[in-house]
Design a binder for these strands. Sequence first.
DNA 1: GTACTTGATGTGGTTGGACCACACGCCTAG
DNA 2: CTAGGCGTGTGGTCCAACCACATCAAGTAC
Lengths: 229, 229
Amino acid sequence: MRTHQLVLQWIEGQLSSGQLALGGRLPAERTLAEQLQVSRTSVREAIRVLEAMGVLRAGVGSGPEAGTVVIADPTAALGSALRLHVATSHLPVKDIVETRVLLESWAASRASPESPALAEAARLLEQMDTCAETETFLALDVRFHLALADAAGNAVVSAMMGSLREAIQDYAGRLTGNLPDWDATAARLRTEHRGILAAITTHDGGRAAQLVADHIEGYYAEAGVGSGA
Amino acid sequence: MRTHQLVLQWIEGQLSSGQLALGGRLPAERTLAEQLQVSRTSVREAIRVLEAMGVLRAGVGSGPEAGTVVIADPTAALGSALRLHVATSHLPVKDIVETRVLLESWAASRASPESPALAEAARLLEQMDTCAETETFLALDVRFHLALADAAGNAVVSAMMGSLREAIQDYAGRLTGNLPDWDATAARLRTEHRGILAAITTHDGGRAAQLVADHIEGYYAEAGVGSGA
DNA sequence: GTACTTGATGTGGTTGGACCACACGCCTAG
DNA sequence: CTAGGCGTGTGGTCCAACCACATCAAGTAC
């Protein structure tokens, strides 16, 4: 057992037992090193790993923002992991898109019309109507789809959706340049978004799922996947 | 930008550009530190992160097994990340099981009867028939379900399935103790497994998906979820 | 009395150097 | 030709020191 793994186990134990909860602060690195009878180096390596997994956040200085505190950002961990494995060409982009369709369709079919996340999605749609710049539109589009996923009320699906999005963010951004007529595409996206929202609010989960699948696959098809770009 | 993140970027760049591929070896820590003009500590922190994400594997000593080599184990990264966030009570086990049902049902509906993974699944079923010990049976059961997921041919879904399984492994193991009659349960599981495999080989994806969903949910229901255990 | 300056304190961030355990492969003694 | 030992290179660990930063308290000027 390597030393930093010992520290990892200790911290995970503190988390499991509830002695270290969300928002809680880890002892200072030097203090923790002395407590566990290991070097500060090993403590830092463990903290780095947990930081990469979205469990901790390290802040320098003094005061409430400083120190190493417990956060909960599953998306960060899954996202960078997926991105890295895409970089090694061992997770095809095709599979990521396919998985996203699967998760988001399911989320749409399960989304509750009364969910606050769905209200947020509706607000985002309104903002997209009065939005001219492509970049802003795309940012709102991302948030709309994430809100849609949240509306299903499954934290794991939400986290995975967010991480999938993050993993192919650069890729999707490049695709936008392939579109022949952005204004026409944006108009179509707006219409489809409204259709999805309408299907959910009328409790037609099956139709919502189908619309989401068509929406995503249609975009990637138009933006060049499969057409040589 | 913190120093170790610089190293992370460099390595990710090498991976993206293909100059560092699966099985390739990273320069020695001391060498890399000199190349990038950073301390060995920072290099090591970056390597730790990538190791936790299943991208690198560090080995001491000399020879082919030594050094820091590129691997591809997306499951490890996603699994430990999910497990940690379950520990912080921010990913309910219920959501994990629900997601597993979703992914595995989809995989069953998409599984190709000619897939090598499906043949592997069939072999595992035969072994389970001639298996007496509970522990061995459960180990084979895990491998059967993972093989089922692989048969869909989507690397992302496979990785996520594996990581979900890993994240709740301890939890599921504890559940087994709640079963009133293990032999009866094992017999039922065997029958259901065969039914799933039969549905796939007869190209009845819809039925396979439904059987998988019933199979998983039935097990958790019997083992105590929702019945106070 | 109030407002500003200044220093003490504590945090993570980074570095260089040192030593250890390990595994391989050469090289020598038999 | 064989068997053992030693050199070399790898990651693993630890230490001591220094830096940058943020806060807070004491002190000072007004």
